[in-house]
Design a binder for these strands. Structure first.
Length: 479
RNA sequence: GGGGGUGUAGCUCAGUGGUAGAGCAUCUGCCUUUUAAGCAGGUGGCCGAUGGUUCGAUCCCAUCCACCCUCACCA
């Protein structure tokens, strides 16, 4: 008899295969944790979950049920539940949800087990689960049917629970520091705050195109202008770009702004935040990522952008002319044709030669102004900005500035971007007149920070693909 | 977009120019402390799609589709 026939047979016995309710008194974990006490008690426990394995012996059966906390074995015996009820169990399959009531005991091998006195179908499953030993291996199926991945591969569940706990830690930490969590628009008439092509959508009533945000930066700054001195938002950003193990078209970003702070204050904040997360999750500030042990404890290494290039290439490019930098990039085998602007060339040199070496937490400071349209010019160093990026395990996790708050300078930077756009750079910034107007009312000195949350979760969960930390990564629809 | 790989039973995977195999799952028996339960016997497949070569293709070739890896792109 197959599953649908069993379903029918149950209905003929007037059993609702999808009942509304079961009164659970203990989870599997609670039973295991307080087993010694429960063993001496006379009142039975009620547990429920999905049947994930089944060993039936004619007139008795053992099975494991999986619930949110873990799993527990159940023992079912014909002469204890009655012959008729036992027969009913033959209509149950692996994958079904069941509620079980009974007293706890230990089997001959010492396994904590519930001896069923009564049981009830809670939901009939019409498909078999993936193979019990290997689990679900096919990556495509794991992403498309994540629920099967979660049922059969326990470490996947742990990764995603960690993700949620990391988010809680971030909020707990920032709230404790006096930050206010806020919400700003996803649908924006002008997109900005990052370099990326946007997703475009249309509002029917207004008959205008709107963009899904690529960043929330310009809105959070409006709140700083409005007098909210410490704000942050954890949100989805959308970038219409390629996908790989570090990029998903929608991804989670933390942006944070603090009035009367500069980028040095933000560096300290980053160190504290990462250590807080590590201590809360693992009770240590040393974490393992692939083959590396990462020591998050402060102070992190600080090295200026140009120095880092000199250190890892042996060449000081800080005063080099554009022509020389282009030649140098070419020698390294990097693209350097004249249509690519110099900021991007410098960036590609950095990414190729410096970034892979940044395993232990490192702040790279003081980026050239042409790479950083929202960062304030450096208080001392000509041609540089007060900007840092934070790298761990070779990945860029943080990007922060002393924020540009000079409206005239900001306007010039936008105009510069407009030129890039005309030259064919699809990712250059669009001039945002409304934002400039806000800034012209006066914006206090402010430190700002962006952290790619997915990458941060990858670091803390030792994952090498962004798809392993996003429940439902973007996939092409099945045909 | 370039290069490489994968696609065979519900799942995990073998395999062959002559219409297909294992383990698990499933079905039928037997089995009242098992745990990758056991024993016996079954069911299950457009061999990713479309063309071509061939007497004959799941296998060789071409194209396409999906996924993975990698490079490019990408704050």
């Amino acid at each position: 008899m197959h599953r649908r026939e069993k379903l029918k047979a149950l209905q003929e016995k007037k059993i609702n295969p999808y009942p509304c309710f079961f009164k659970r008194t203990y989870t599997s974990k609670e039973i295991c944790d307080s087993f010694e006490k429960l063993e001496t008690e006379t009142t039975p426990v009620s547990v429920c979950g999905r049947i994930i394995s089944l060993r039936s012996h004619g007139k008795s059966a053992f099975f494991h049920i999986l619930d949110g906390d873990g799993k527990i074995q159940v023992y079912l015996k014909s002469d204890e539940v009655g012959e008729e009820k036992y027969k009913l169990f033959e209509l149950f399959d692996i994958g079904d949800f069941i509620g079980v009531t009974g007293k706890v005991f230990k089997t001959r091998t010492g396994e904590k087990t519930v001896r069923s006195e009564d049981f009830q179908l809670l939901s009939k499953s019409l498909h078999p689960l993936p193979e019990k030993w290997h689990g679900l291996q096919d990556k495509e199926l794991r992403y498309r049917q994540r629920y099967l991945d979660l049922i059969t591969n326990p470490e996947v569940k742990e990764t995603f629970i960690l993700r949620t706990r990391i988010l809680s830690c971030i909020r707990k930490f920032l709230d404790s520091q006096g930050f206010l969590e806020v919400e700003t628009p996803v649908l924006q008439p002008v997109y900005g705050g990052a370099f990326a092509r946007p997703f475009i959508t249309h509002h029917n009533a207004l008959d205008i195109d709107l963009y899904l945000r690529i960043a929330d930066e310009l809105y959070l700054k409006r709140l700083i202008i409005g007098g909210l001195e410490k704000v942050y938002e954890v949100c989805k950003d959308f970038r219409n770009e390629g996908m790989d193990k570090n990029h998903n078209p929608e991804f989670t970003m933390l942006e944070l702004y603090q009035a009367y702070a500069d980028y040095s204050d933000i560096m300290e904040l980053c160190e504290k935040l990462f250590n807080f997360i590590a201590l809360e999750l693992f009770n240590t500030n040393k974490i393992r990522f692939q083959d590396e042990e990462i020591d998050l404890s402060p102070l992190w290494r600080r090295i200026s952008f140009w120095e880092s290039i000199e250190k890892y290439t042996g060449v000081d490019l800080s005063r080099a002319e554009e022509k020389k930098i282009r030649e140098f990039a070419q020698d390294l085998g990097l693209k350097s044709d004249p249509t690519i602007r110099i900021g991007k060339i410098i960036e590609s040199i950095f990414e190729a030669k410096v970034q892979p070496n940044l395993i232990q937490p490192t702040f790279i400071l003081d980026y050239p102004v042409e790479m950083s349209p929202f960062a304030k010019k450096h208080r001392e160093k000509e041609g540089l900005t007060e900007r840092f990026e934070g790298f761990i395990a070779g990945a860029e996790l943080m990007n922060a500035f002393s924020e540009l708050n000079d409206p005239l300078d900001q306007r010039e930077r936008f105009e510069q971007q407009a030129k890039f756009k005309q030259m064919g750079d699809e990712e250059a910034q669009v001039l945002d007149e409304d934002f400039l107007k806000a800034m012209e009312y006066g914006m206090p000195p402010t430190g700002g920070l962006g952290i790619g949350i997915d990458r941060l979760v990858m670091l803390f969960t030792n994952s090498t693909s962004i798809r392993d930390v996003i429940f439902f990564p973007q996939m092409k629809p099945e045909s």
